[in-house]
């Protein structure tokens, strides 16, 4: 049983014009086995929340805490957070020329597990995980994210998730740029991971369509750097029919 606890989190982005506050007091607890959807309009800061949890150097936390099972996450480096059991599936995964998917996954797994997996069993493990996501085995020989389609990038993110088996998964707009088929495959891959590991999930999304495949236990509306309303899955239906306008009101929207 793991708990990611975010308490009154304030964070700013570092810009040329000085720091600019984006997160303005986020409080949220995600435990194993539960799936939280964080939904909000563009520019509300919901992706920033994902990056701050992962430790992206562009952001600075000015107040509040994040703990994983009581341990201070903010004191950890990016790689320490990942090894502690946090995983961020990125919206825009970067290309890494000359680093094959195979070597990347193996190096990640070695870091996560504390020792290099045996080559032969590793190859099978990787192949099986790729099968679930309907990925061609030749994919492993390509360079990380280089020339990947939108769908391939997201499958690759979920592939990592399924191999690294984090305690808490954060999915940042994993549905963006996916057609219906790809969304279904990616969602099924994620659901298989969730079922197998019982991980907790923070699912960040702008649209409700991914929630047809990945069912949340809780839905949070995120506006202007904080959660303005929380509820069950029915809140997603409200957002689907009414949009975000009711929640945005006249609040200034961070861009």
């Amino acid at each position: 049983m793991s708990t990611l606890a975010i308490n009154d989190l304030h964070a700013s982005v570092l810009t040329d014009g000085g720091p600019r506050e984006i997160l303005r007091g986020v409080t949220l607890t995600v435990t194993s086995g539960s799936t939280h959807a964080v939904m909000g309009p563009n520019g509300s800061g919901k992706s920033t929340l994902a990056y701050v949890i992962a430790g992206h150097p562009k952001y600075v936390v000015t107040a509040g805490t994040i703990t994983l099972d009581g341990v201070d996450v903010l004191a950890m480096t990016v790689d320490e957070r990942a090894r502690a059991g946090l995983f961020l599936a990125m919206q825009y995964p970067v290309e890494i020329p000359g680093v094959s998917v195979s070597n990347f996954l193996r190096t990640s797994a070695t870091a996560a597990r504390g020792e290099a997996p045996k080559l032969r069993t590793w190859m099978k493990e990787m192949k099986d995980a790729m099968g679930v996501l309907q990925m061609d085995p030749a994919f492993a020989e390509r360079n990380v994210n280089e020339g990947f389609s939108g769908g391939e990038k997201k499958r690759h993110e979920i592939l990592q998730l399924s191999l690294l088996k984090p305690k808490i998964a954060i999915l940042d707009e994993t549905d963006s740029g996916l057609d219906v088929d790809a969304l279904r495959v990616v969602s099924e891959g994620f659901n298989a991971f969730r079922e197998e590991t019982g991980a907790g999930t923070l699912l960040i999304t702008h649209y409700t369509r991914i929630l047809r495949y990945i069912h949340p236990d809780y839905v949070h509306v995120f506006v202007d750097g904080r959660i303005v309303e929380s509820g069950g899955p029915e809140l997603a239906s409200v957002l689907e029919s009414e949009g975000y306008e009711r929640f945005v009101g006249n609040a200034p929207v961070a861009s």
Binding site: A54, A82, M90, P93, I96, V99, T107, S108, A111, A112
Partner: peptide, 16 residues
């Protein structure tokens, strides 16, 4: 950042 976010220590990420 991408490599470190997968648990790979910074020095190893740079080498890769």
């Amino acid at each position: 950042f991408y490599l470190q976010a997968r648990g790979i220590p910074e020095a190893v990420a740079r080498q890769l």
